[in-house]
Design a protein around this nucleic acid. Sequence first.
DNA 1: CACCATGTTCCTTG
DNA 2: CCAAGGAACATGGT
Length: 303
Amino acid sequence: MFAGFGKRATLAAMPELPEVEVLVRHLDPLLRGRRVKAVEVRRPRVLGPTSPSALSSRLPGARFERVERRAKYLIFHLRKGNRTRTGASEPSTFRLIGHLGMTGRMFVQPVKAPLPKHAAVVVRLDRGVFVYEDTRYFGRLTLDESSLAKLGPEPLNGEFTVEGFAAALKRSAQAVKVRLLDQSLVAGVGNIYASEALYRAGVSPRKAARRLRQDEVARLHGAVIAVLREAVEFGSTMPLDWSGQAGRDGLFYYGSAPDTAGYEERLRVYDRAGQPCGCCGTMIRRIAQAARSTFYCPRCQRS
DNA sequence: CACCATGTTCCTTG
DNA sequence: CCAAGGAACATGGT
């Protein structure tokens, strides 16, 4: 199916902005108009500060209106008609905030299908069952919106400007790779696309953020947008099965586009330590920064 | 058995 | 007060 999958196929799902975007596009038409019959919380920790009883009193009877994305978060818009004492109907809207953490998945499955082992929240609908499952339970499905307030500009809708990016980088002596993971600087970049964007821009991940020249800032800004946009496009070409998985391993961001001649691998440096750089042949290197892996080409990313 | 992986939040240190 | 660094969270794969 995929050439060159190798050992990377065993890596667990790692949702960053593009993966969440594709998931949202997948879920929106499935959930739109569906009414909640019941909710079952199997792992209260994933609700964050929201109590299981708060969720159980809010969700049943509500209808999904639409699903949207903000950074790596999913935002479910729901509407519920509240009855007043006079018997009149007073519709009220509220939002459910989802985050996949590192291993989370969300999908709509048939009523009769068995629930996955790590199902954290199960929402029974008028048609089908909406499941949030997460092996490590680092993600969230909650009524609490506080994390959204800390997010910086969205990279794909014009909010993310070169000027703002340059100003934010100037304030820090930290390595630029570490800064890219700060969601207040640009929201949605994770460990994989941070390495990819730096490689594409030809900027060393170790360079102090404030030392980037203007041309480097501009290239990095463009590279962040480009790698995310291309990943969304790539993921959009992958058919998802009923559980929301794409391809053999549910990892649409690994492997190759099915319609690409020669099955060229899409990620250039991530998880490629010891392999030759596709541009100059130098061995890709792996280093640790802020307790995370960074992959880069020491020749193409010298400054 | 020991160690590694991802994202976010919290705690400590300077 | 803020920047920066590191631990914790939970689980499974190697």
